[in-house]
């Protein structure tokens, strides 16, 4: 039987209350949202917090998807199911629905949250790759106020983020840019599993040419990797199979996968290449209204 080590359970009634509890209880306190990352870690005793602060009652305050000005704002307690079902989000960023369809299973998606996924910072976690691809920023709140970090600043390494003691991730902001689309491609051993490799792409076009593009990969190294070289190679170019191949090659080159039961290093590099091509192709097809199949 897997049972977490003993801890004191507290329940927060507001964001301010959660932060006050974190301040009072110190560095041995952890927030639990959906619990589908943290509780398994606690059951394996990889995580042994002395205090657990349940923030599920904050769903009313932090569970939202809304447009403000030129960005989407998504509350950290927004659950996977809500991200999957949001037509507004899917219309602006199809990558979210692509990814959510292949994250765990419907029952797990009833519980897991956007904020919890990002804060777990698992290198194979899909929403970190999605947020990296979309150039999202993360709002971290403490009693001193808020700071807004890029995904690059937020994600410090495997299982490590910029959220310090007595701070909490409250919101994700995603810039809305015209003439763009996005896609997510994942290969997994079985439905609902962690990625062997996955790739997100976002493309913006100006007429026939790509004005900007971003690619974010998961499970190919210690960090969810956004690859700047791909953006540089794609900007100003007309999308062709050759261009996707160049981008795929750069993705494989930038990957630093480790061999494990999910596959060899070479196989994962191959996937990084192929999935990058597919995600770019599908993003462009979504803009131009073509079918997105390989030519």
């Amino acid at each position: 039987m897997q049972v977490p080590a003993p801890f004191e359970y507290e329940r927060a009634t507001s964001v301010d209350h959660a932060i006050a509890l974190l301040e009072r209880l110190g560095s041995e306190a952890r927030l639990v949202a959906g619990g589908h990352s943290l509780l398994p870690m606690m059951k394996l005793r990889f995580a042994t917090p002395e205090y657990l602060i349940d923030i599920n009652d904050l769903h009313d305050e932090l569970g939202y998807i809304r447009v403000e000005g030129d960005e989407f704002r998504i509350g950290a307690m927004t659950r996977h199911r809500e991200l999957l079902e949001s037509d507004e989000l899917a219309a602006a960023f199809p990558i979210f629905r692509d990814a959510e369809k292949v994250i765990a299973d419907p029952v797990v998606r009833n519980r897991g949250t956007l904020g919890g996924s990002l804060c777990q910072a698992d290198p194979a976690e899909d929403l970190s790759a999605v947020c990296t691809t979309l150039d999202a920023s993360c709002v971290i709140r403490s009693s001193d106020g808020e700071r807004v970090l890029t995904m690059h600043e937020f994600h410090r390494g495997p299982y490590e983020t910029a959220v310090e003691d007595a701070q909490m991730l409250t919101e994700i902001r995603i810039p809305i840019r015209p003439n763009g689309s996005s896609a997510y491609e994942k290969v997994e051993r079985r439905a609902g599993d962690w990625a062997i490799v996955s790739a997100g792409a976002a493309v913006w076009m100006d007429g026939e040419t790509i004005s900007d593009a971003r690619v974010g990969l998961a499970a190919v190294g210690p960090n969810t990797t956004g690859i700047g070289a791909i953006s540089e190679a794609l900007r100003g170019q007309v999308p062709t199979e050759e261009l996707y191949a160049t981008a795929g090659g750069l993705a494989a080159e930038a990957s630093r996968p480790s061999a494990d039961s999910r596959g060899t290093e070479a196989y994962k590099r191959h996937l990084a290449d192929e999935l990058t091509r597919r995600a770019l192709r599908r993003s462009v097809a979504r803009i131009t209204g073509t079918n997105g199949q390989e030519a």
Binding site: Y9, R11, V32, G35, H36, L39, P40, L52, D54, N56, D105, P106, V107, V108, N110, R111
Partner: peptide, 22 residues
């Protein structure tokens, strides 16, 4: 495996990954 699924506020959840306190 999902054999522990119960409904919590009418939604299926895996009760091995929810604390009773929650």
């Amino acid at each position: 495996c999902g054999t522990c699924v119960v409904l919590m506020d009418d939604e299926p959840v895996k009760s091995c990954t929810v604390l009773a306190a929650m």
